[in-house]
Design a binder for these strands. Structure first.
Lengths: 295, 295
DNA sequence: CGAATAGTGTCTTTTAGACACTATAAG
DNA sequence: CTTATAGTGTCTAAAAGACACTATTCG
């Protein structure tokens, strides 16, 4: 390693007084000495989402130390030199929630100079979709240091009672106003298990902003990607109703049954992405056809 | 440096068999000592796109040193401790191309451990859209160390001759096959000013992959965002035909005139995003209505 | 039977695509 | 007139949305 550094430094000295393009190459090389410059810390932040009781929830941890002591934050951790950001994210999810092999996708990288008051931190945020049944985060023993919060945007409801239906009013379908181009003006709404609403100001760092970014991303992609499948308890056996509940939880409103089936069958079943397996046994009501994700 | 690593390894050995949540907080704090860990280098990569002669082009620089000496690469630079990634990207664009205030958006962060053979580098890639007329990159003096390459995907054309129409065949409209969900199978096609085709293997590092990601992102977003406006020579005075040329260059195929006008007027003019100004003077043909971007 | 859930059919509105046509300029 | 570019109108097909209806289970 040492001789490589020497070689790079020699290169840097030799090629001066050039046009801007060459100067760029020169600086590039000089900077490549890993000890020559102070480098920022790099972390991964985990937006771990799940759908529990037909509601979209996110995992937050309570900070035990300043800054933002006592506030809730997105779990994260430092990137190690021998792992990629994806690997670090997967590792943190394993450590934090005891889950392996979940769907993981990069969200955004946050790099504002002052986002952490202590030192310069670059955070690469990842979005993870996890079936609620697989989550294991030190449940009863400690006073809740980690917890799931229901996530929504602004006005779309006040009813935080768990075990309830998705939405009080608006039973009639998907007739939600479609604002401009990238719409959805409201603000982030986090509801604890006991119904308490956590105002965005109570979130540590810039994590409220990150959560909002993640939610908007999911809402934008759920219709034409495989995102929803990551929430299914068993991707090898689910009903279209269960899949619809996932979509509804993410979008924050009910979907029309017939229209949902039509588009799913057209866009996914016809494309061979999901397939029927057999008719399940119902507990109440008519038994539903079971589907499985293919590939 | 060596004793720090030893200390860390000792820590690593000591901190086993804990409750997962508390261990995370503890580790978080320990890692916050900025000198305690070896940190990766962080760079920004600039995907500088422009539309010149109705063709989509990207700025690449030729590497003067190993690794990948002589190969073409995406321009980039190191992130400084006192600037955000966005600021670093804007600075590099100013240095490299002499442009200020261009549209800039984050693309993706690349973090594979071995992506640079010298040291650990995290690259935050930014996509910039620049009017061709504003580009100033050390033009005639040196043998081209930086150059614009026409960008396309796979099969969609062979005609690299500049100053030509966008596409040889396929004059009939937008009837391009719509594969599955995230389609567009082909591979990256880079064409130099002299018509030479640069195979993806000739691109340094993982930069061919990054370019492909960028192109796909642009194609996906051009229809419902303000992306195209960033390429207009004068956003305060342009014609719908000029705007269409930008869309065609990015998509890689011609668009139907009537349908294009219809959707632009519905989605942008009706929403107050663009507005008519006055009828321009034509050089040939009927003079066109001029539009301007609002806000 | 009623309650509960699964699933179908169909009408209307909106959007996308294809394509022929008219309009206004220069020479 | 021809050419070149700008702009309109319209027919059709596909997709989205609303909503009423039928089907199958349990008790």
């Amino acid at each position: 390693m040492a001789e490589i550094k020497d070689a790079l430094n020699r290169y840097a000295g030799a090629e001066n007084a050039e046009g801007s393009v060459l100067r760029e190459e020169e600086q590039f090389l000089r900077d490549y000495d890993p000890s020559a410059f102070e480098h920022p810390s790099v972390t991964v932040d985990i937006l771990l989402f799940t759908v529990e009781e037909r509601q979209l929830k996110v995992l937050l941890v309570r900070r035990a130390t300043p800054p933002f002591k006592g506030r809730w934050a997105i779990p994260g951790g430092f990137l190690r030199m021998e792992e990629s950001a994806e690997e670090a994210a997967a590792r943190r999810i394993r450590e934090e929630a005891g889950v392996e092999g979940v769907h993981l996708e990069q969200l955004y990288t946050f790099s504002a100079v002052d986002r952490d008051p202590r030192t310069r931190v670059i955070s690469i945020a990842y979005l993870a979709t996890v079936p609620a049944g697989q989550l294991r985060f030190g449940a009863g023993e400690e006073t809740a240091e980690a917890a799931l919060f229901r996530v929504g945007i602004g006005e779309d409801s006040g009813e935080g009672a768990p075990g309830e239906e998705v939405s009080g009013g608006d039973v009639s379908g998907e007739n939600v106003s479609r604002e401009g181009v990238s719409g959805e003006a409201g603000r982030l709404l986090l509801t604890a298990a006991d119904g308490t609403v956590l105002p965005p100001e109570e979130i540590a760092f810039d994590h409220a902003e990150i959560l909002l970014t993640a939610l908007q991303r999911m809402r934008g992609k759920i219709g034409y990607t495989d995102l929803a499948f990551g929430f299914l308890e068993d991707p090898q056996s689910f009903t279209l109703a269960e899949l619809r509940y996932v979509h509804e939880a993410i979008l924050g409103h009910k979907l029309d049954v017939g229209n949902f089936r039509r588009t799913i069958k057209r866009d996914y079943e016809a494309a061979g992405r999901i397939g029927e397996t057999e008719i399940g046994r119902g507990e109440v009501g008519r038994p539903a056809m079971q589907y499985r994700v293919i590939h």
